[in-house]
Amino acid sequence: MIVAERKPFSEILSMVENYSKIIVLGCGSCVTICMAGGEEEVKILASQLRLAFKKDKKNVEVEEFMALRQCDDEFMDDPVLIEKVQAADVVISMACGVGVQHATAFFNRVITDSPTRIVPALNTTFMGANIGVGVWEERCVGCGDCVLEKTGGICPVTRCAKSLLNGPCGGSSNGSCEINKDTECAWHLIVERLKALDELDRIKPVEMYKDWRPSHDGGPRKIVREDMRL
């Protein structure tokens, strides 16, 4: 899932302090699961904003709303939500960067009488897994050319600090990476996993330099499935 964390309150407040009608819009997908922008977090941020405005004796209306997925038209096309956004001065999106951008495009497409102002409440951090209660760790950098079948399901591109493709560097020590003892050496994990699978031969061929063209390069990547289009 996409993992994000909330921006400091002072930063969010500075984005919206000049407006009098605010909507805090949560997202019911990844950021709900990583407890950064779900229903609970929307209510907490809205409550903090109300407290801050009340303290400064400002009459600001703060409303809360949820969209199941801010990165998809289907889940945003809610007449009640659109009406509320139309009446608001600013929308604080608690989605990831994808959701914020899609919400901006969506609302500015469906609301034509005035432009809609959307600001982000989260910093989108990485694509990762929930590895323990309240702990998330990066697992994929979206390089566009997956090598997991060769490396026993452990990604050296993401989990090795140097993204090495041909075994560990000299900084691997007792299974830890030299950058931090708490960071596991990806290549140590890979070798151990392949040993357990009795498939160490998989990493014998030398990997040539990685082709980074399918990764983030040359503008936004795009997938078009012609079979899905009418």
Binding site: E40, K43, I44, S47, R50, L51, K54
Partner: peptide, 11 residues
């Protein structure tokens, strides 16, 4: 007792 219950009390 949730975080929000306490915040609501202050509100």
């Amino acid at each position: 007792v949730e975080v929000l219950h306490i915040l609501k009390a202050f509100e």
